[in-house]
Write a protein that binds this DNA or RNA. Structure first.
Length: 211
DNA sequence: TTCGGTCAAAATAAGCAGTG
DNA sequence: CACTGCTTATTTTGACCGAA
């Protein structure tokens, strides 16, 4: 439903997602900074004012967001504000480098982009952007998963694991003993891989996925 | 007339030396 | 370090403008 509330909430959401205020977003889009102010949303006599499609096109262009992304914000907001937390986001490939995690697999330091996500009640959770095709057909390239290093991991769980060598992978935990960890890919084209527990730096459960 | 966007001006917020 | 006083940038409001 394209309500007045939803469309403005989506603009606010877009601004927040890119760390801008509403007026900052307008300025970045080459519009007058006042275009999205509150007083421009409801006129003096209480009538609803709407942004033009041209303005919306400009802010999407300026932020580099996609039209589907904006539609997402529209349906999410839907007029009813939802509890949202901002979680750190990182790419799977980047995650292998040093400096992003502490020894226990909790996100640390700088370099994390923040994305808003529905509240999942875990302040330690973070987001990973999937790359590669080893997780097909469950996760596609570009999907975002929410990972909780605090959640307990059991057989059959979808997990993110990092090896001592710095390789980060998204797998299915197929077997776990005191000394061995067996990880299988969702994509049958990839073989199952076994690791000595000492070769795994940390393992964290995927608790949510945006697809 | 109506509807969005722009203009001008005022209110806030954010730095930032200088001082005790 | 904390506190002023000052400057600059950002945000907001309400009047106004041009297109349809």
């Amino acid at each position: 439903m394209l309500t007045h509330r939803a469309i403005w909430a989506a603009i606010d959401g877009l601004a927040e997602r890119y760390d801008l205020t509403a007026s900052g977003l307008a300025r970045k889009a080459g519009l007058d900074p006042t275009t999205f102010n509150r007083s421009k949303r409801i006129s003096r006599d209480g009538k609803q004012r709407w942004p033009s499609t041209e303005s919306i096109a400009k802010v999407i262009e300026a932020t580099g967001a996609s039209v589907p992304e904006f539609m997402d914000l529209l349906s999410e907001s839907g007029g009813v504000p939802r509890s949202v937390q901002r979680v750190p986001l990182i790419g799977l490939a980047q995650a292998g480098k040093d400096g992003f995690f502490d020894d226990a697999g909790f996100p640390t330091g700088e370099g994390w982009e923040k994305v808003p996500f529905p509240e999942i009640g875990d302040p330690q959770a973070y987001a990973l952007e999937i790359s590669g095709d080893s997780m097909l057909p469950v996760y596609r390239d570009g999907d975002i998963v929410i990972v909780s290093p605090a959640a307990s991991v059991r057989r059959g769980d979808r997990v993110i694991a990092k090896t001592m060598q710095g390789e980060v992978m998204c797998k299915l935990l197929s077997r776990r003993t005191l000394t061995r960890i067996e990880l299988s890919s969702f994509n049958p084209a990839y073989p199952e891989r076994g690791f000595d527990v000492h070769d795994i730096a940390w393992i964290a459960r995927i608790v949510w996925a945006a697809q």
